[in-house]
């Protein structure tokens, strides 16, 4: 029983971070219709920015998080304006190709700049934990979970309560009508990609605290984000939380009861199941 409870706690804490990782991918996919294969690389970059702020400038990783997000926002905004705008109306194959190329460039640039060594953001309280009904709760994972949920909720508020957020949703739903009502699509696209990259940066900062960084983590993080975005649906940030929690729990339980090597099998199995039963995602609405 204790093992099951510990597995649930681990899964939920992991799921919150997963949700934040997937949030930017789902946002960009939903608004720009671009499946950003470089999303994981942006998470990786966020991790390194936070790592160097921590080791170089001695800034606590949770304080460095907004700085990391801001840096990645600028990177994302520039990538969209200078690169992705070239293929914004192109078939999806072109956008997949260009973001795949971007992923390769960012990954190998990171290898040159940071080396292939594993690195961890390791604050003094990294080992702190407490017991919750018999389960061990690591403090940094709980903090990461709370921040991930807060950012997801913040994005939901932004999209539903602010004029700019409404413009982003409007652009994703009906581009022609959005243009007729004064929306500048290029600005909205760049802002959306910037926000997606900022969320990836924040996720990367938290990832560096709870796990290990190296230049090659991007591919698997993109795959996880893809699965979560599909499970949760693209239209609602709160759906991404559900998707993240589902994936976190599935991975945790699989690792606990079957074996860690089978976590990807279980994750993609859940993806196939959701696509068959509810193709619009768990919280997506049917037509």
């Amino acid at each position: 029983m204790n093992l099951l409870w510990q597995g649930i706690v681990n899964g939920v804490l992991l799921g919150g971070l997963y949700a934040l990782m997937a949030l930017g991918l789902a946002l960009v996919w939903g608004v720009l219709n671009i499946v950003n294969l470089a999303h994981g690389a942006l998470i990786m970059l966020g991790g390194y920015v936070c790592y160097y702020l921590f080791t170089g400038a001695h800034i606590d990783p949770f304080v460095a998080l907004p700085i990391t997000a801001a840096v990645l926002f600028v990177v994302g905004y520039a990538i969209q304006r200078r690169l992705l705008n070239l293929v914004i109306r192109a078939p999806m194959f072109n956008t997949l190709l260009i973001t795949f190329g971007l992923d390769v460039v960012l990954t190998y640039a990171a290898q040159i700049a940071f080396s292939a060594d594993f690195r961890t953001v390791n604050p003094s309280y990294a080992g702190a934990n407490f017991s919750l009904l018999g389960a061990t709760v690591p403090v940094v994972r709980l903090l990461a979970f709370v921040i991930a949920l807060a950012l997801t909720f913040g994005l939901w508020l932004f999209l539903t309560r602010t004029p700019l957020g409404r413009a982003i949703r409007a652009t994703s739903q009906n581009l022609v009508a959005a243009r007729l009502y004064g929306v500048e699509p290029r600005r909205i696209y760049a802002l959306t990609f910037g926000i997606g990259a900022a969320l990836a940066g924040a996720a990367g900062a938290l990832y560096g605290v709870v796990s290990q960084l190296n230049p090659y983590i991007g591919t698997s993080l993109t795959a996880k984000s893809f699965v979560i975005a599909i499970i949760g649906g693209l239209s609602n940030p709160l759906g991404v939380i559900v998707g993240g929690l589902v994936l976190g729990l599935v991975e945790s339980m699989t690792s606990l009861y079957i074996g860690a090597t089978y976590t990807n099998v279980a994750s993609f199995g859940i993806l196939v199941l959701v696509l068959i039963v509810r193709p619009t995602g768990l919280l997506g609405r049917t037509a």
């Binding site: 409404r166 949703r169 409007a170 739903q173 009906n174």
Partner: peptide, 17 residues
């Protein structure tokens, strides 16, 4: 050409964007 997945209220606010 409404924003079909947005509420009536949000559609009206988009008019005033």
């Amino acid at each position: 050409q409404l924003f079909g997945d947005m509420s009536v209220h949000d559609n009206l606010l988009m008019g005033a964007y």
